[in-house]
Amino acid sequence: MSVKLEMLRTFATVAAQGTLSGASAVLGRTPSAISMMLAQFEQEVGAPLFETDRKSRLTPLGQLVLDEARRATEAFDNSVDAIRRHALSTAGIVRIAAVPSATVALLPDVIDAFRKMRPQVRIEISDVDSAAVRARLHRDEADIGIVSARPGDPLEGVRILSDDLGIVCAEDGAIHRAHSDTQGASGWDLLQLEPLISNPLCDLVNDPTVEALRVASVLEARNTTAILSFVRRGFGASILPFDAVRNQPDGVEFFVPAQSPSQRELRKIKQEPDSLRGPALEFWELLNR
C-alpha cells in the first residue's frame, strides 16, 4: 500500500469540512483535484471511506482511518515544528515538562540562573501533571521532567526537594473559620466543610476523608493558578504544597493539618542515564536545592 501523507491530510480535511468545496477552500486546491486524491486513497485502502458522494458521513472504516490520519498528520506537524525551532535556535534548546507547582515555585530561579550561563539557549516549558510529564519524556517531547511523588514510594529519578501538603481555602470561608476556632489543632476532616477542588496531589494524602472527597468531587483542576483562582472565587478548597502558594496574592489561606501530616517530593527524571548533553545537562544539574 502506497499511502502518502498528503492523502491523509486531504482526507482528514474533507471529513472535517463535510464537503469537497469546503475542503477546497481550506487546502487551496480545486474540488476535482481533491476528489481525485480521495479516489486514489480509497483505492489504496481497498474500501469506501464515505457513505455517500456528498462526503458528509463516514463509513465505520472511514472513522477509524480518520483517527489514524489525525494522529499521523499531528505527529508530522509536531516534528516539523521541532525541526524549525532547533534550526532557529542555533545555541540549542532545552525542553522541560513539569508539574504546575514546580513551574510556579522551582523553575523561575533555575531559569534565571541558567539564562545567565546560556542566554542564547531556547527554553520550552510544558505545564502538565505527572502522568503527562512521563508521557512527554516517553514520546521524546521533553528532555527533562519534574514530577510529584509521595515520600517513601519506589524511587523515580532524583529528589529535588520535599515540602508539606496542606489545605488551601478562602480567607472568609468555613474552613478558615473552623481552623481558627481549633487554634490550628485540626485535620484533613475540615475539607468536609467546603466542596473539594480535586487535583492529582490529593492522591498523595493518605487520609480516608481526602480519598472519599476526591471520589465525590465535581470540580477538578490541574493548574495551580486555576486552583487558586477557583478558591478565591469561593468554589471550594483544595490541596497544594507550600511552595506553590507562598508567593500568591491575598484572598487565600494555606495551613498544614496538625493530624496526619503529608508531604510530597519533587523529582527530576530523564529518559536514560546518559541521555542529556550540552545545555540540557547543564539545566539538569541546576535543578537541585
Rank of each mutant, 00 (worst) to 15 (best):
I123R: 04
D172G: 09
A174I: 07
D164N: 09
G173V: 00
E68F: 09
H86V: 07
V133F: 07
L107I: 00
A91I: 07
A113P: 03
L137R: 04
H86L: 13
R136C: 01
A170F: 00
M117K: 10
P60V: 02
H86I: 08
M117T: 04
A72F: 00
I123M: 13
A87S: 15
D77C: 09
A69Y: 02
P151L: 11
E171N: 09
A69N: 10
G62T: 01
V133M: 12
V158K: 08
R115S: 07
G92E: 02
I167H: 02
S180R: 04
T59D: 06
A102P: 07
N78D: 10
A113R: 14
A87L: 15
G157M: 04
S180M: 10
R122G: 13
M117I: 06
A132R: 11
S79A: 14
V80M: 14
V94Y: 00
E156T: 14
H179K: 06
R84V: 12
L155Y: 10
A131P: 05
P60N: 04
A105E: 02
V99N: 03
H176A: 13
L155A: 15
C169W: 00
I167L: 10
A135S: 15
V99M: 04
R85L: 15
V158Y: 06
S130C: 11
S148F: 10
N78Q: 14
C169S: 13
P119Y: 09
L137T: 06
R122T: 14
A178R: 07
I123T: 07
A178M: 09
R57E: 15
T59H: 11
P119F: 07
K55V: 05
A102D: 10
S101D: 06
L61P: 04
R118S: 11
D181N: 06
V133L: 06
G166C: 07
I123E: 03
A82E: 11
D172Q: 13
S56Q: 14
S148C: 11
T59G: 09
H138A: 14
A174H: 11
R122E: 15
R177E: 09
D164Q: 12
R118K: 12
D109E: 15
R134E: 14
A105W: 03
I167N: 05
D143Y: 04
H179A: 12
D112Q: 13
V94K: 01
D172W: 06
A87V: 14
K116S: 06
R159N: 12
L165V: 08
R57I: 12
R177P: 01
L107N: 05
G157E: 10
R139M: 11
L66H: 06
R54A: 15
V121Q: 04
A105N: 03
T103K: 09
I167C: 10
E171S: 14
K55R: 15
R54C: 08
E124Y: 04
I96R: 05
P154G: 10
A135I: 11
D143F: 05
A91K: 08
H138N: 11
D127L: 01
G62K: 01
P60C: 04
R71L: 07
V104D: 05
S130W: 10
D129A: 01
S79P: 03
S162H: 08
L137E: 04
A98Q: 03
L66I: 06
T73C: 13
D109Y: 14
E156W: 07
L165Q: 01
T73A: 07
R136H: 08
I160A: 11
I83L: 11
I144M: 00
D77T: 03
S148T: 13
H138T: 08
S79K: 12
